[in-house]
Simulated scan of single mutants.
Amino acid sequence: MFEAMIDPTAGPSATAAGPPRAGRPERLDGLVVGLVANPKKNAEPFLDAVGELLAAEHGTAGVVRTRKTSITDPIPPATLDELVRRCDVVLIGVGDCGSCSAAAVADGIAFEGAGVPAAVICTDAFRVSADAMARLQGSPGYAYVTTAHPLAPLDADAVRERARLALPELVELLTSAVPVAAR
Rank of each mutant, 00 (worst) to 15 (best):
3 E>Y: 10
5 M>C: 05
6 I>M: 05
10 A>D: 12
15 T>E: 15
16 A>Q: 15
18 G>T: 09
19 P>D: 14
21 R>I: 14
22 A>C: 07
24 R>E: 01
27 R>F: 08
27 R>H: 09
28 L>T: 04
29 D>E: 15
29 D>K: 07
31 L>F: 12
32 V>P: 07
33 V>I: 11
35 L>H: 06
40 K>F: 05
47 L>R: 02
51 G>K: 10
51 G>H: 07
61 A>L: 00
64 V>G: 00
67 R>F: 06
70 S>P: 02
71 I>E: 07
74 P>Y: 11
75 I>N: 01
76 P>Q: 05
83 L>D: 01
83 L>N: 00
92 I>T: 09
93 G>E: 10
99 S>M: 14
100 C>E: 15
102 A>W: 05
103 A>M: 08
104 A>Q: 03
106 A>W: 01
109 I>Q: 00
115 G>V: 05
119 A>G: 09
124 D>V: 00
125 A>R: 15
126 F>R: 11
128 V>T: 14
129 S>R: 15
130 A>R: 11
130 A>C: 10
133 M>F: 06
133 M>W: 11
134 A>M: 11
135 R>L: 12
135 R>A: 13
137 Q>G: 12
141 G>M: 02
142 Y>K: 06
143 A>S: 14
144 Y>M: 06
146 T>H: 02
148 A>E: 13
149 H>S: 10
153 P>D: 01
154 L>S: 02
155 D>A: 14
156 A>Q: 05
157 D>L: 15
158 A>N: 06
160 R>E: 01
161 E>T: 14
162 R>C: 01
162 R>L: 11
164 R>Y: 09
165 L>N: 03
168 P>K: 12
170 L>K: 02
172 E>C: 14
175 T>A: 08
180 V>G: 14
